[in-house]
């Protein structure tokens, strides 16, 4: 226990895919299970940790989230909740997808949850054509296949365009 307090002020360096370096306090980095495992498994905190899949803009957002959650005491759950909803507000889909990928890669469960929920909320109750448009998903069904799938799930489309 004493050693973890002692190490509290240690910092480590993260490097984004586009080469920007971020100096991060250890207790903030511990929000990420990936980084936690790296630190546990004897990875020297003097080393620069490369994150080849995450660009600087996304990494800055991720670290902002981690800092807020690392610094807040558990009694301030309400404050954290409003921070979380404010954090994702007005974020464009591209940034949101970058964030969900980064949270998945760095294993930050809380961030992954709220970003996934935000995407899910965006597509809920929208017709599938619109879902395809929003996410640029290519329709790979033939018209016959599409009709068959619709028929199988007929009940789900009752009262729906």
């Amino acid at each position: 226990m004493a050693s973890s307090i002692e190490n509290n002020n240690e910092k480590l360096t993260l490097k984004s895919s586009d080469g920007e370096e971020f100096l991060v306090e250890k207790h903030v980095a511990l929000q990420s299970t990936l980084l936690q495992n790296m630190l546990d498994s004897d990875c020297s905190s003097a080393d620069v940790i490369p994150l080849p899949k995450i660009d600087a803009r996304t990494l800055a957002l991720v670290l902002g989230y981690c800092k807020k959650h690392a610094d807040a005491s558990s009694s301030k759950q309400g404050e954290l909740n409003s921070f979380d909803s404010e954090f994702l507000k007005d974020m464009d889909m591209g940034a949101l997808f970058n964030l969900v990928l980064a949270a998945n890669f760095m294993e930050i469960k809380g961030l992954l949850d709220i970003a996934a929920q935000k995407i899910a909320d965006t597509i809920k109750d929208k017709p599938h054509q619109e879902v395809r448009e929003i996410f640029h998903v290519e329709n790979d069904y033939t018209p016959e296949e599409e009709a068959a799938v619709r028929e199988e799930n007929r009940w789900a489309f009752e009262g729906f365009p």
Partner: peptide, 20 residues
């Protein structure tokens, strides 16, 4: 993970239509 957050079964069944 995203589909899990949607969870509503009616919506999920409609999403069969989105893509393979």
């Amino acid at each position: 993970h995203i589909l899990d957050k949607v969870s509503d079964i009616k919506w999920l069944c409609r999403c069969f239509m989105v893509s393979k």
